[in-house]
Design a protein around this nucleic acid. Structure first.
Lengths: 338, 338
DNA sequence: TTCAAAAATACAATCGATTGTATTTTTATT
DNA sequence: AATAAAAATACAATCGATTGTATTTTTGAA
């Protein structure tokens, strides 16, 4: 494509009107008369003019764009959060650039750099599973760059985090299994550098304590909670004595474990009851349907982006960091019914 | 955030070296001596310099960025295509901006404009279900802007399309049902402005013809193929006499229809056999597992982006339009077994 | 040591839009 | 008709990086 892009200077020349006036006209400034505006707008349409945002952004030092980094867009939870973000952004007149780290710290670093060098006005991020050092993020944050963590918080320094109450969720899930009669409850846990998984585990142990059940580290199976991990966990679980309940820190692992156990003749929930985490759409459909924790995903997107836009506006103020905690809810389905 | 961004001019001043040399040094040009390069690179690191891509892109008129517009990132098919695109793009040194139209033509138009005004080097798009007029796309295409359609092609003018052989897929799916013994096969079809759905339907009718079964328009139920539509279609289907097979143009509608029918005591596949389309991950897990058409999604992303990069490179040549057709494959699962 | 060639660096224009200031034109008041 | 105020428009600098050309410095061969 030859560079036949039309600029305001082309319009300027075509009409014999200064480019500054053209610019003002196209931005509907009231410093330009109605008549001239009309002429300019018409000529712009005629020539097929399209603003060069790069130039505009460079000059104004404002991009009206935010970046969002999630581990994986195909995860229902994240795409719902993104939906919430996009809705808020649309109302605020902001564009959104969606990126996925694929759980890789290297990709994450590169994405942050790219977004920053494109001068997005702020970033919303849910860190990768590999991220345990936060320098590539706090460096920007400390410069005063608007940066907000959601779902997977960062507490190594002062930050704004939007999370759900994972301890409560873990407690509720486990308590439900106990009240249902489970005595030997296994916990599928995730990478411990993520506070979120630490908290779900905390909730699990807290519930055991509350109900006077001894906690045993043997009953905690840690993995990345991918599909394959669920199968491995199920195999491991079968070697443990009289397990009758599982609280999995995500649905994916729970589902693959259930599938595997079914092939081994284990009856869910009679032999082993299951509670997952995330309320993936599939969880309502499989058999047995999976009890799980519902997270206010869409709301999380709205809350996080609203906070971000506040930070972007209050450029001058040292924005106060705050942690917003949203409430999860337990959905009881067949995988844990009597 | 005050604008304390470090520029090459800051480095220039700090070292008493002209900014052009600084720029060249940071781009590792061999017009700068090794010694000076080192000084500059060190100072850049010290000051926390980060290139302003906006300025760079404006000057060079090259963004090394492509845009991708899909209807919905949460759809497994699209996120897999995106994965393929990102892999190719990464190798080519390009950034990818992911956008979702949410099946809305208005959003789609706005996204194309935004991407263009940000001067992406090209766009890959799978159009929305609402899109039946293509002016907002062909306008750019005709200017010589690299634009490629995937999965949902555009044949109103000369374009590059990357698609799968939907006719064959529809044929295979239907033929399989017939060979299995089905005589009254319903087809869940999608919006007819999308060629893809027209083609799947074509394949369906072609198979009926081939096997000497009369085609009846009554047996085609058209909708947006969303979850809710599947239930409505199932209800409608129950009113038809002796339906014994369904070929659904996507998995989503098939799955919700199956769920509904099961509650009505219909046995799948004994009473009604099902074949879906897309091979969503859920399809392997539900009960009965859903026979479906597997699309080479990741490959489609690679092929489409490879073609796009070729077009971007051959700026001058009038790039030849071409249609690439990828081959789908039928996966037979329990929903259509004997 | 001298000087041409090569290497390194500096100068200055440029990408396209925006914006503060200056100038011209119009309007309205006397 | 004169003139001050207001409205409309023009001028010119700027955002930050890049790049063709010019200038200075270094190198090495005679």
């Amino acid at each position: 494509m030859k560079n036949n892009n039309v600029t305001i200077h082309d319009i300027s020349k075509a009409l014999g009107i200064d480019s500054s006036t053209v610019s003002r006209a196209l931005n509907n400034s009231d410093r330009v008369s109605k008549k001239t505006k009309e002429k300019i707008v018409n000529k712009a349409a005629e020539l097929g003019y399209q603003r060069n945002s790069l130039a505009s952004k460079l000059r104004t030092n404002r991009t009206n764009t935010i970046g969002v980094i999630v581990p994986r867009i195909s995860k229902h939870f994240f795409s719902s959060v993104i939906a919430g973000i996009e809705e808020t952004a649309f109302q605020a007149g902001f564009d959104v650039i969606i990126c996925q780290s694929l759980e890789s710290i290297d990709r994450e670093k590169k994405l942050v750099e790219t977004l920053y060098s494109n001068r997005v006005d702020g970033i919303l991020i849910s860190i990768s599973m590999e991220t345990s050092n936060f320098d590539h993020l706090t460096n920007y944050k400390n410069k005063g760059f608007p940066l907000i963590f959601f779902d997977r918080p960062c507490n190594v320094s002062e930050n704004t985090n939007v999370i759900i109450d994972d301890v409560k969720a873990g407690f509720d899930a486990t308590a439900h299994l106990i009240e249902r009669g489970c005595k030997n409850i296994v916990h599928f846990s995730g990478p411990q550098n993520l506070e979120l998984y630490r908290n779900r585990k905390k909730g699990y142990t807290k519930a055991l304590n509350t109900y006077g059940i001894a906690f045993s580290e043997h009953l905690v199976i840690e993995s990345q909670l991918m599909q394959q991990d669920g199968i491995l966990a199920a195999k491991q679980l079968l070697k443990l004595p009289k397990v009758d309940g599982v609280f999995s820190a995500n649905d994916t692992a729970a589902i693959s474990a259930i599938q595997y156990l079914k092939t081994k003749g284990v009856h869910i929930p009679k032999d082993i009851a299951f509670v997952g985490f995330s309320n993936e759409p599939i969880s309502a459909i499989i058999e047995p349907s999976l009890s799980t924790i519902n997270q206010p995903d869409f709301e999380m997107g709205k809350v996080a982006s609203t906070l971000l836009f506040e930070q972007i506006k209050n450029k001058t103020d040292a924005s106060e960091n705050q942690t917003k905690i949203l409430m999860p809810s337990l959905i009881i389905r067949n995988s844990s019914k009597f």
